[in-house]
Design a protein around this nucleic acid. Structure first.
Length: 324
DNA sequence: GCCAACAATCTCCTACGCGG
DNA sequence: CCGCGTAGGAGATTGTTGGC
């Protein structure tokens, strides 16, 4: 069936946990990936939820069997307490607190293939206040094998379009202490840390294709990360009257959408991201709709390469033979 | 000091067989 | 079907050493 050729973009997930506000994850990426996966569930289902082992493995990007011990270990790390200062919780101001991200995780005998999680609301609040939101794509995050790659990628997503003097270049500066904290390392010299950074940048390039560079400024004593800011397209690139139709088309072909509890709210968030041109894979989706719903083959006729905008099409010719 | 090369250890992933 | 344990390999991580 032709329709299977359309590759739909993954739903975006928020992640506010990118700045090392978790216990030192030593040499592993897994606790970081687990954090992303749990936050993803938290956003959808609140602070208590059950998750099957297979779903968890999928979210962590583990394809093989027999990783249970490693998962237990990662869960253990997220239960370590962290000291946090100066935040507001439920209208009250706190000076200091000792909090752990995960309150408890249980695997009951009677429900063997599931793990029951309870996440700390307070910790989520702290993280939101301290570091804000970063949109991450779990499908991409789960592919990382090195903590350097994942951490730098999270930073990259967070400061993706950061403003600088040079409008075409995003620049982030961090000193040795900040990065040691971020990576959970204890390097005493910049050169040691640079090795890991280079490996991470190489991995990011391999996984996402994004080109990020980094060097150490010896005089000012900080690391400089920089990348080209992609050219901005006009905000709305498809005809306005096609937006709702495109969302319906997306939902029809999006298996994950079945799990969404508040479908109307989800529709609104999709619309907003299309209006702001923040919807990953808009082109593929829109072209897919033109091609498979309307049987339009000369798509380029409606697309302006320079502005990235699509002209509307009027020739309504529904394809009737699609499912024959 | 920094860096490259070497080396020891660790992590991640897969394949396979076993048992429910 | 699912999960568990194990073995083994690729590659990641980190410490060390010698040269500049």
């Amino acid at each position: 069936m032709a329709i299977e050729k359309i590759k739909l973009p993954a739903i975006k997930k928020h992640n506010s946990l990118t700045d090392g506000y978790i216990p030192k994850s030593s040499k592993q990426v897994l606790p970081d990936k687990l954090l992303n996966a749990l936050y993803y569930k938290y956003e959808r289902e609140g602070n208590k939820f059950v998750m099957s082992l297979s779903e968890l493995k999928q979210l962590l990007g583990l394809r093989s069997d027999g990783n249970v011990e490693r998962i237990y270990e990662a869960i253990g790390i997220l239960r370590h307490p962290v000291a946090v200062k100066d935040f507001t919780y439920k209208g009250k101001k706190a000076k200091w607190a000792s909090v752990s991200f995960l309150k408890e995780a249980v695997r009951w005998v009677e429900k063997e293939n599931f793990i029951e999680f309870e996440i700390s609301d307070m910790m989520i609040e702290v993280l939101k206040q301290k570091v804000g939101y970063t949109e991450l794509d779990l499908d991409i995050c789960s592919k990382f094998k090195t903590k350097y790659g994942l951490k730098i990628y999270e930073m990259y997503k967070r400061y993706h379009r950061i403003k600088n003097d040079d409008k075409n270049l995003a620049i982030i500066k961090k000193d040795l202490d900040e990065l040691n904290k971020k990576f959970g390392s204890e390097y005493k010299t910049p050169s040691g840390l640079l090795r890991g950074i280079r490996r991470g940048l190489k991995e990011i390039k391999k996984i996402t294709g994004e080109d990020i560079s980094c060097f150490y400024d010896k005089k000012k004593k900080f690391f400089v990360f920089f990348w080209k800011i992609p050219t901005r397209y006009p905000k709305l690139r498809i005809p306005y009257k096609r937006i709702d139709e495109l969302i319906e088309w997306y939902l029809e072909h999006q298996k994950e959408a079945i799990d969404i509890k508040n479908i109307q709210k989800y529709r609104e968030s999709l619309k907003k991201s299309i209006l702001e041109d923040e919807f990953d894979g808009l082109d593929i989706l829109y072209r897919g709709m033109m091609m498979y719903k309307y049987n339009i083959l000369n798509i380029e006729k409606y697309y302006d390469e320079i502005t990235g905008k699509y002209k509307d099409f009027n020739n309504y010719q529904p394809k009737t033979s699609l499912f024959d």
